[in-house]
Amino acid sequence: MAERTQLIHHYLRHNKKFPHVYCAGCGHGIALGSLIRSVHALGWSKDEVVMVAGIGCSGRMAVYVDFNTVHAVHGRALTIATGIKLSNPNLKVIVVMGDGDALSIGGNHFIHAARRNIGLSVLVLNNNIYGMTGGQCSSTTPLGATTTTTPFGQMEKSFDLVELAAAAGANYVARASAFHAQGMDKLMQATFTHRGFSLLEVVSPCHTQYGRKNKFKTVVDMYRWLKESATPLEQYRKLSAEKAKGRIPLGVFVDRDEPSLEERYADLRADQTAQAGRR
């Protein structure tokens, strides 16, 4: 307990007026806890960490933590982060986005940042809904789900974030769940230290805007569902298609070691300046 209090005092902003905006049971707060523990475990100084966040409940995280924090415009966090990382590759740039932010309005930036393999640690807090604006469907809302803009059920298919990032060229892709906080800590640290574009999807329940309308009576029901359907990736891969249905695989999906854009750029510049020197 004492250690946790110390962490809170060290990493949360004392000059920011709390309470925070998160509802009781929101998965985003659990991700925030994991983020703080991970930065602490890695021994990073607060000065070298930059958090760039999108707009949404997820994006509000940036205001609470005592790093260099940038609250972007909706969907564009990755573009600002790209400018920061290319300008100063020594900074540890963590990007926090919601599913709507990263994949609906920001979908184009998402695939291109992954393709570019720019050295960003990217967290997408996936609650399958637009939390902040009142529960409209997002591009990860499951087929058939009820939301305020799909009152008769979602008719569109949803994105699989992990597959999208893998196909687009991300160096590292993993998925964690808000129920499995210790597992999340491990994956988060790996995400933070991996070179190139590194993505961690966090399955993050939003009972307020999603669960209530989709047959989860209480917050606890949502976490029970998450506990029961989450499956380690190794185990998941052995399941028959029928048994795998409805399960959520957690773990590391992609682990590549390709040079990041900023590394390639540093090589180019060294080359160019050497040539200029010879001329």
């Binding site: 600002i80 290319l86 291109h112």
Partner: peptide, 27 residues
């Protein structure tokens, strides 16, 4: 790329270009 610290990047659209420029300015 031939300057001591210059960075050039072609982005996916003009929205992204402005975002990157803002990030660079902050940095």
């Amino acid at each position: 790329p031939g300057t001591s610290d210059g960075v050039f990047v072609q982005m996916e659209d003009e929205i992204a270009s402005m975002g990157a420029v803002i990030g660079a300015s902050l940095a």
